[in-house]
Amino acid sequence: MREFDYRYIYRYLPEILPFLGVTFLTVIASVVLGIALGFILAVGKLGKNKIGRFLANGYTTILRCTPSIVLLFVVYYGLPELMMGLFRIDINDIEKGIFVVLTFSLLFAATMSEVMRSAYESVDRGQLEAAVSVGMTPLQAFYRIILPQAFYVALPNFGNSVIALLKDGAVGFTIGFIDVMGKTNLIVSLNYGAHSREIYLGLALVYWIISMVLEYVMKSAEKSLGKGRRILKTN
């Protein structure tokens, strides 16, 4: 077997890195859509409607037990069939990225609904009571008092979920999606598997650095948004 050649780790980097843009775009799209759907689910979970609660919780439970690659395949093979059967629309030629974004939006929504729900529940009931006693409408109370506090509680979980999403999204290459992972795989197969060790390791380093940067950004965001917040120091 060939010797491990360090130079190959960064030799292909210039070819791979541009595709980080694709990766980030998918992440951002999935996050946005996921938050939107997640919010609706969270509302469902916290609402008084039993059916709504059942559906929302059911959705979360099912998706939490679903491997991302399985959902990806189901969406990739299933959605075109569904669209064809129901609407007679042929979507077989659309961008693979759409399937990826769709899959991960669905998954992210499940996570987000939990994050939002627990953040909302963690805010003391007394805050709402005080707000309405002062004369605010429940809606005002929600936006001015509850939401900001819930937001701060949710932040660390949100950050972790985004980083997890970034990593999870790498399986997109299995349906031929060309993001940074897909491009790497492409290069390896074009080279008949030569230097695969070095190239994959290089990719790992790329992800590692991005994760660490994201973690740092999240921590700084938490710190700066946490100003004016007393941390209870227990003796």
Binding site: L166, K167, D168, G169, A170, V171, F173, M181, N185, S196, Y200, L203, A204, Y207, W208, I209, I210, S211, M212
Partner: peptide
Amino acid sequence: GTPIVVQIL
């Protein structure tokens, strides 16, 4: 910090 897929590969 790295995806499990990448670790596998």
